[in-house]
Simulated assay, not measured.
Amino acid sequence: MTLSTKKLKRAIAITAISSLGMLSVLAHSAMYEIDPNHTAARFSVDHFGTSTNAGGFYGLTGIIDYQPEDEQGFVGITIPMGSLSTGLKAFDTHLKSADFFDVAKYPTAYFKSTEWQFDDGEVQTVKGDLTLHGQTHPVTLNATQFNCYDSPVLETKVCGGDFETTIDRTQWGITTYTDGGMMKDIKLVIQVEAGLKEDNS
């Protein structure tokens, strides 16, 4: 007896999360698939105390398992580093080089949550591990809003929100120009939405 395509996709997703030690979270799960068209990770950094440089990463993919009734959740997001865009082609090329993100060597980054924190049923923070530039370190994302709604575009239930954090890029081995006055702290603003998968049985 063979699995249907939907059930096979779900089995693969559960297997992937199980390998991350998250199978217990899925006992009564609602699985959502991240919508790349409504998900992005944007950054800004002080440029030698003169101005602020900004850009973003797009086309993010992954899954969210959200259980508000149990105040539990899991999110795994893959970030294609080659999608980096600042609106300036020369600047994009420099940021993708070995001076900064070294996209040729590290084409993807990954965030895997380890804990969701709630207050009176509302998502407050998502703690997890960010793998970037070949290194993994903990990061805490602070929710500025989080909500679920019935999407007329995706024709399914959608959950998502906005998150913010500040990271020290030198923790991930990205140190270029820090000795010349370019700040090491990077502000991240993450926008994420995910649609309920059709078969959550």
Score class of each variant (00 low, 15 high):
99 D>V: 02
118 F>P: 01
113 S>F: 06
138 P>M: 07
80 P>S: 03
177 Y>S: 01
107 P>W: 06
193 E>P: 07
75 V>M: 11
107 P>V: 06
139 V>L: 13
20 L>K: 12
141 L>R: 04
87 G>L: 05
62 G>S: 01
107 P>D: 10
189 V>E: 05
71 E>A: 10
37 N>L: 12
69 E>I: 04
21 G>F: 12
169 R>W: 10
139 V>Q: 14
149 Y>R: 09
200 N>S: 08
199 D>K: 00
94 H>N: 06
37 N>W: 02
182 M>A: 15
43 F>M: 09
147 N>M: 05
147 N>I: 12
48 F>W: 01
68 P>N: 08
90 A>R: 13
185 D>F: 07
84 L>M: 12
186 I>Y: 03
108 T>G: 00
97 S>N: 06
126 V>I: 13
156 T>W: 02
114 T>G: 07
111 F>E: 08
171 Q>P: 02
12 I>P: 01
8 L>F: 09
82 G>I: 09
59 G>S: 01
101 F>N: 02
143 A>Q: 09
21 G>T: 08
4 S>R: 05
80 P>L: 01
59 G>T: 02
163 F>Y: 10
195 G>M: 02
64 I>C: 14
166 T>D: 13
147 N>K: 05
109 A>K: 06
80 P>Y: 08
189 V>H: 08
31 M>F: 12
160 G>I: 11
133 H>W: 00
150 D>S: 08
118 F>C: 02
182 M>L: 15
101 F>R: 02
11 A>N: 10
201 S>M: 05
62 G>Y: 02
84 L>T: 01
186 I>G: 07
27 A>K: 15
152 P>H: 00
55 G>E: 04
27 A>Y: 03
93 T>P: 00
27 A>W: 00
120 D>M: 04
18 S>E: 14
178 T>A: 15
165 T>N: 08
200 N>K: 10
174 I>W: 01
9 K>G: 03
146 F>P: 07
181 G>Y: 03
80 P>E: 11
190 I>F: 14
180 G>M: 09
141 L>N: 09
40 A>D: 14
166 T>V: 15
94 H>D: 07
64 I>M: 15
175 T>E: 13
48 F>I: 00
138 P>Q: 12
60 L>C: 03
158 V>R: 12
58 Y>H: 12
198 E>Y: 02
91 F>Y: 12
47 H>M: 03
196 L>F: 13
169 R>I: 05
68 P>M: 07
188 L>S: 00
90 A>H: 14
152 P>Y: 03
167 I>F: 12
96 K>L: 06
70 D>H: 10
127 K>L: 09
24 S>P: 00
133 H>G: 02
111 F>M: 02
131 T>H: 15
144 T>G: 06
144 T>I: 10
1 M>I: 07
168 D>H: 07
90 A>G: 08
60 L>M: 08
50 T>R: 08
181 G>H: 03
126 V>W: 13
59 G>Y: 03
14 I>H: 04
92 D>N: 15
177 Y>D: 04
113 S>Q: 07
128 G>T: 07
143 A>I: 08
